[in-house]
């Protein structure tokens, strides 16, 4: 405690690395970066005890912009990488960031299993309903009739992936939705998510100004989530399905045992080697 008091508290800007983001001016991801650094400052987390793990995509570039430990890994594989790190180093605060393509398409299987493991990670998905990095293809959260990509000239014709509902069904113990146009609300959600023991999923509506200029209308479409977070998954499911996917706030927060349970060390290598002796 004393050591902490003698060093001046870090400000949000102290968590910025100084690497210049490659993002387009106006990209929603800037606000997510700001909210992450603000929540880290608010929680007074030492920079060297934070690790930000990501996959590939515009959104996945975020770790390099934060002055903490980080890993910009493979497209879709941020969650397993973060899982390995958190199991090996439970002392670290591990955050995972990425996009809707990264997390729900190529990494969809890992998303399901991270939710059901309830490992103490905070997973922030910047959903812009498009593949920004590869220049404008449909993602799993894109509406079926969005026909602006040459790759799917008539739209995908496939129903949208429902991140919150799927996270809940897969067993996530903390589910929230933020919007890059509401930085204050997002910072509060992120701070709660980081504090939550277990897996927390933060779905952020983060517009792509370049390939989805239509998302400017989001600022009029978002609204507070119809009710405060409960801890009953059945109730949460009902509310998620009743909502239009634009409701902001903490949707579900439930306290369940965090994985993995720790075992006591009880043997030595020499004892193990003895098993083989004839």
């Amino acid at each position: 405690m004393q050591a902490k008091m003698s060093t001046p508290a870090l400000q949000a800007r102290d968590y910025k690395s100084g690497v210049k983001p490659i993002w387009c001016p106006g990209c929603g991801h800037f606000a997510v970066l700001a909210a992450i650094t603000r929540s880290l400052a608010y929680l007074e987390l030492p920079r060297e005890e934070v690790a930000l793990i990501s996959g590939i995509g515009c959104s996945s570039r975020l770790p390099a912009y934060v002055d903490s430990y980080g890993f910009h890994g493979l497209h879709g594989r941020a969650l397993p990488l973060a899982t390995g790190l958190k199991v090996a180093r439970p002392d670290l605060n591990v955050l995972v960031t990425g996009g809707d393509g990264d997390g729900f398409s190529i990494g969809g299987n890992h998303f399901l299993h991270a939710c059901r493991r309830n490992i103490d990670l905070t997973y922030v998905v910047m959903d812009n309903r498009v593949y920004g990095m590869t220049k404008g293809q449909a993602s799993p959260t894109t509406a079926p009739d969005w026909a602006a990509s040459k790759m799917t000239p008539h739209g995908t014709g496939v129903r949208r992936f429902q991140p919150a509902a799927i996270a809940l069904a897969a067993g996530a113990t903390f589910i929230a939705r933020g919007y890059s146009g509401d930085p204050k609300g997002m910072t509060r959600i992120l701070a709660e998510a980081i504090r939550h023991p277990g897996f927390s999923f933060v779905h952020v509506l983060s517009p792509c100004v370049t390939f989805r200029p239509d998302q400017r209308s989001w600022k009029t479409e978002v609204h507070p989530f119809p009710a405060d977070a409960g801890n009953d998954p059945v109730e949460a499911a009902r509310r998620i399905h009743a909502d239009d996917g634009m409701g902001l706030g903490i949707i579900h927060a439930e306290s369940l045992p965090v994985w993995p349970a720790r075992q006591e060390t009880e043997t030595t290598l020499a004892a193990i080697e003895k098993e083989f002796l004839v």
Partner: peptide, 17 residues
């Protein structure tokens, strides 16, 4: 959950030391 996860988990743990 699969080998894609296995190798990435291993990388994460090793990154942690």
């Amino acid at each position: 959950e699969d080998e894609l996860a296995s190798i990435n988990m291993v990388i994460g743990a090793s990154y942690g030391g």
